[in-house]
Design a protein around this nucleic acid. Sequence first.
DNA 1: AATGAATGAGCATTCATTCAT
DNA 2: AATGAATGAATGCTCATTCAT
Lengths: 216, 216, 216, 216
Amino acid sequence: MPPDTATPHEPSRRRLPPAERMPQILEAALEEFAARGFAGARMAEVARRAGIAKGLIYHYFPSKTALFEAVVRDGTRSDFEAAERQLSQHSGSYRALLAALLDLGYQAVCEDARDRVLFRLIIAEAEHVPELAGFYRDEMLARSVGIAQRLLEAGVAAGEFRPEVAAPGYAEVVLAPVVMLSVWRIILGNADAPEAAAMRAAHRDLLLAALLPPAG
Amino acid sequence: MPPDTATPHEPSRRRLPPAERMPQILEAALEEFAARGFAGARMAEVARRAGIAKGLIYHYFPSKTALFEAVVRDGTRSDFEAAERQLSQHSGSYRALLAALLDLGYQAVCEDARDRVLFRLIIAEAEHVPELAGFYRDEMLARSVGIAQRLLEAGVAAGEFRPEVAAPGYAEVVLAPVVMLSVWRIILGNADAPEAAAMRAAHRDLLLAALLPPAG
Amino acid sequence: MPPDTATPHEPSRRRLPPAERMPQILEAALEEFAARGFAGARMAEVARRAGIAKGLIYHYFPSKTALFEAVVRDGTRSDFEAAERQLSQHSGSYRALLAALLDLGYQAVCEDARDRVLFRLIIAEAEHVPELAGFYRDEMLARSVGIAQRLLEAGVAAGEFRPEVAAPGYAEVVLAPVVMLSVWRIILGNADAPEAAAMRAAHRDLLLAALLPPAG
Amino acid sequence: MPPDTATPHEPSRRRLPPAERMPQILEAALEEFAARGFAGARMAEVARRAGIAKGLIYHYFPSKTALFEAVVRDGTRSDFEAAERQLSQHSGSYRALLAALLDLGYQAVCEDARDRVLFRLIIAEAEHVPELAGFYRDEMLARSVGIAQRLLEAGVAAGEFRPEVAAPGYAEVVLAPVVMLSVWRIILGNADAPEAAAMRAAHRDLLLAALLPPAG
DNA sequence: AATGAATGAGCATTCATTCAT
DNA sequence: AATGAATGAATGCTCATTCAT
């Protein structure tokens, strides 16, 4: 591993109130945990990234594990709010809404989002930190499946989609390709992962063909 | 983390030919890497699991990294062969083949496969061990996308599927839900992940509806 | 080799400024390297001699090799300065200066100098630590040859010595016996090595006879 | 340290009588000890150089230490014999004999002699292996000083040299430059050490001038 | 005699954590 | 609050030595 060149904070040697210091540390810790995983992360490196001394971390967090859990808890800032807002404020065809939400999803995946960083952490450490799995289940999977589910149900109710597609399992299948692209980008990097644009177009085409009633 | 109580090998102090010892070590290492990740894995624990002395590992592998790479390389024993065989030996409708391959995929995901262990390792460590990303890209993603692509092309050629679906991006979207279920099971465990049966049924229904020409 | 009972520092558990701790460590390391050579030296033993924990060494030096190089660099405090001063401040016959410098050299060899410890280290490890050879060449050999060379040239210029003796090779031959006595003492100890007093007298007699013009 | 490319023996897998195997091992061990010092030498490397398996060394030598001592004992093959022969068979002027012996000495130093290898070992390890110091004192220093001493005494007896030069200390000073050149070559390599030819010429010139009676 | 698989003690090095300043 | 010197328990790795084959 290269001697990480991540930009450290300006060397603020000034005394800061906890409300300002904690986010600095959490941000630095997120970067470090994401870059090295839990076991590979070094407290000294977290301190360097935050621009503070090693010892100061222990004023705010009693241990590496506690810091890690705080990082995860802090990661709750959701990108789902935009989608949920679109869903509830919607007026127009559900075909159009489906397309709009798909665009939103692929766009989120393509942005250099901190979310992917958290996502990788979750995949890597979920087995050892049960809280991570719970967090993903409740804050990420449930919400995205919920959005897809409500979209499908509303479309069925409006007569735009086939009635079967509101059954269990459909929502997961509908959103899986977006999430999977995110995983592929985690594994392969943005360059080597499948093309986002091609997948988005294919995804939209397939969904529209699959959801609409045969009669059109 | 508790001092793992995984069953160690019988305390064979016997001299074994390398051809028998190496798989023992690779097996033990896979378990340990899967349980702890690369950084968290301990060579002493690998030795304990294999029922040998620490030093012997270094008789076979020059370093922890080399051992890790050998574990991954060794994991190449592919589940794709069955799918590739079905694809090339197929006679009958491509709708039926699609359904059969989907069943094969969901079944593979549901088996307690060592493959998922390997998959988690790849996701977690790909950034630090470049070989892993290449391995996934060439041996796993390319093969599964290739199978899906050939299925789509053949179905189009046979007039069973819409011509558009052979375009880039479709194959990835078609197989993404199966792979994504695998990831969800990695994160959440088999119990908390979405229902495989429901997803499989929804997936099949959606694909058949999406791929067939409008005229039916 | 017995588990060395060299006096460890007082068990100072106090926090010290680096400017005080580093010399402690360097001193302890010199002792240990001198006693065991580079490969044989143990970092734990260096720590014990310095009265600190093993880990602290790595706070100051990134590796055993770096510590070794620092020890050597630190040993530069030269005994050549006295000789160089005499040479430049000299007024009087060069025969007398020659005798004075010889006395200085034999005296330096006979003192229980840390320099000999360093010298043995250099001889023993030069092949493996290239910096050592360069250090000896530039800081020890070049300086002592330089002193002898300037003495010979000045004596020739003053008409006291034969003109030939300023040619290449003479300076090395002139000082070799002093250096060699140092090596013999390294190998054999002070007791078994040739007599310093006898060598000094013989050396002075031979040089004076050899350098002076035949006419006397 | 580079992955040593020293030529290993042909892989003689044949069973050999001890009388043939031992020299192979001793030769290989001398190379390895000389290259790495006692602590740094590896038995596996000795075996590789000898073209045999590690375990076989222990058929002939009970331990690394025992092997080392055997290497030293075996190194007694003297280069002094030629000088001693010249000295005893001599007829002619002692000035000429002095020059001839000097030539012999400088020539021995310049040859890529195994002796220097042993010499370095002696310097490096003498403190820890008392036998080494004794060996050097008796087999090398005493013999070379003895040769010089007898030469001086014979020259004095023949009236060629000043009577004083048979006193203690002169023999050591007379031969020191040759030995010192050997040490310099050990430390600095043949390329960086002082010029052998220049030293030899200066050495001869100085000695002849110093030893002859004033009257010539 | 010969091999090289196997052991285990030992060593360099790392790093979470503590605590004097 | 803040620092970074100091600790010590791991942990990766080496290597002399043993011994089954």
